[in-house]
């Protein structure tokens, strides 16, 4: 398997890893959002879904086995994604130790220029989010109720700044995906005049769906639509 090492050694290899893990994470976020949107169908639906998450795969697999598999993949993906991102960022920093006194961007989009910080924000958010809704540690004053995600979410979002954290994080995620999902194709060499336009729209659409979908929940709570 030494070829993997030599493959990963170059920036192109790292980018490919970022692309793949990025794609996986993007898919995960989409599924996650789809599930969470059940919140609009009422408590029982969401909680039902949360329970299903743990029983999915059964009876073929033991209780919450599949969930754990996904969790592990998720952790691995985030890890690789971040490691590659960090290494690439460092390599680029070293490539120009003495910065220009002035360098204007001609075309580089805002999204592309914020990938790195955007990523960091997302990471911090994930940590915060896990404490908040998975472990229920007292990051939000709202009381955490084991196995009642509906209550936890709504109670959480009723605190304006908690909602704000989610909204900001998802805006960051949206930007990240906007450029990321476009770059992904080039990193994997999937570039062809016949679908280059489609590529761009896909990235924009995907990013919008995720952002709007996720933001809709805290907003709905703040507006009292969900309570």
């Amino acid at each position: 398997m030494s070829w993997i090492a030599s493959f990963y050694r170059t920036a192109l290899g790292k980018k490919a890893v970022m692309a793949v893990t990025g794609a996986f994470l993007a898919g995960w976020v989409l599924a996650h959002m789809a599930g969470n949107l059940k919140i609009f169908m009422g408590p029982e639906h969401l909680n039902e879904y949360a329970k299903w998450l743990r029983t999915m795969g059964a009876p073929a697999m033991p209780h919450s086995a599949l969930l754990w598999i996904v969790r592990i993949l998720m952790v691995v993906a985030v890890w690789l994604h971040i490691q590659a991102a960090t290494q690439l960022t460092l390599q680029s920093r070293e490539a120009r130790p003495l910065a220009y006194t002035r360098r204007d961007n001609v075309v580089a989009s805002y999204a592309s220029r914020t990938m790195r910080w955007g990523g960091v924000i997302i990471l911090l958010f994930i940590l915060y989010h896990l404490l908040h809704l998975t472990f229920g540690v007292h990051v939000a004053p709202a009381q955490f109720v084991e196995n009642d995600p509906y209550h936890n979410v709504v109670a959480g979002f009723q605190v304006w700044w908690v909602a704000a954290v989610y909204i900001i994080a998802n805006l960051a995620l949206g930007l990240h995906l906007w450029h990321g999902l476009r770059a992904l194709f080039d990193s994997l060499g999937l570039n062809h005049p016949n679908f280059n336009v489609a590529r761009r729209w896909f990235a924009v659409a995907f990013a919008l769906v995720i952002t709007i979908g996720n933001i809709s929940m805290p907003v709905a709570v703040l507006l009292g639509i969900l309570r």
Partner: peptide, 21 residues
């Protein structure tokens, strides 16, 4: 060529600045 390039230069984040100039 890529491996030599990699020893010397930075990485591509698809900023597209190069194409523009």
């Amino acid at each position: 060529m890529v491996e030599t390039m990699d020893e010397l230069f930075g990485t591509c984040s698809l900023f597209r600045e190069c194409e523009a100039v």
